[in-house]
């Protein structure tokens, strides 16, 4: 399909990019284009202006600042997946995103900005308690991940804001991501998935964050499961009990790949598997 006609620019700096975004009636940022271009070709999205941030320098790095990791706007899924500093949950989520071509072009920030409920990395970012750094006309703004995912395909970014980096706090512990892909195993978009992050001290779970993929309308925290696991010994029984509460407070939505009943069940399985792996890592 052909998109409606649109203007395209590839500014060299963030300032220019933000200004162009502000000037247009309806502009979209393009990073890897893996989700934006298909939507445009289907005419589900018809921006007047596409602002390609691909030529802006300094956005392609994963940096360890000591207290957090910074993932720049042009860090590709492949870079995230193969990094040895990125926490396991996000690495796994990136490595199971799409296929080789998609991982070579698509960006972690793009996947997060896109805020698709079936996408993998948003849940990981949420479980890791990341902070999104957005740059807009009035400067830089930090958005906690808990506030970032607003609704289906909707993030807290304003139309003229660019997500320049994702900051992942270095808080130790262990993390993991697991999903069942639409074509089975880890392949393709998630039917349901879960990311978990835990810290353990003296045999007790001291902190935990768990986030879900694919079950509601947006990437969401499984708060009941989080609360249930903290303070326990992280035993198999404790994990099982916590994962039973995976979708508490979340409206599970049926789609072609699963009924509400199935997805609710799957969310529990994935939370259990992710928590179990995260605990193993935290203890090691």
């Amino acid at each position: 399909m052909y998109p409606r006609s649109f203007d395209y620019i590839a500014p060299a700096s963030l300032e220019d990019a933000v200004r162009e975004l502000g000037n247009a009636e309806f502009a979209k940022v393009m990073a890897g284009g893996m989700s934006l271009i298909p939507l445009m070709k289907l005419r589900l999205l018809s921006p007047d202006l596409v602002v390609d941030i691909g030529r802006i320098g300094g956005l392609g790095e994963i940096e360890d600042t000591g207290d957090h990791l910074s993932i720049g706007a042009l860090v590709r899924h492949r870079d995230t997946a193969s990094s040895d500093v990125v926490p396991t949950a996000l690495r796994q989520a990136a490595s199971w995103t799409g296929d080789v071509q998609v991982r070579n072009r698509g960006t972690t920030c793009g996947a997060v900005a896109h805020a698709d409920v079936a996408a993998d990395q948003p849940a990981a970012v949420l479980a890791l308690g990341a902070t999104m750094v957005a740059r807009g006309p009035s400067g830089i703004r930090e958005i906690p991940s808990d506030e970032f995912f607003v609704d289906a395909l909707t993030s807290a970014l304003a139309p003229d804001e660019i997500l320049t980096e994702i900051r992942i706090p270095k808080r130790g512990g262990g993390s993991a991501y697991d999903k069942l892909g639409r074509r089975g195993g880890h392949t393709d978009y998630a039917v349901a998935g879960a990311a978990a992050w835990v810290t353990v001290s003296d045999g007790a779970v001291t902190d935990a964050r768990v986030a879900l993929t694919g079950v509601g309308t947006k990437p969401e925290l499984a708060r009941a499961a989080m609360e249930a696991i903290v303070g326990t010994d992280g035993s198999e029984g404790a994990v099982r009990a916590a994962s039973e509460r995976a979708t508490e407070g979340i409206t599970v939505i049926e789609d072609l790949y699963g009924s509400v009943e199935y997805k609710t069940h799957l969310a529990k399985v994935m939370v259990r598997r992710a928590l179990t792996q995260a605990l193993t890592e935290a203890r090691s």
Partner: peptide, 8 residues
């Protein structure tokens, strides 16, 4: 034999 159907 999608997972949902097999599970069901």
């Amino acid at each position: 034999l999608r997972p949902k159907r097999v599970w069901q």
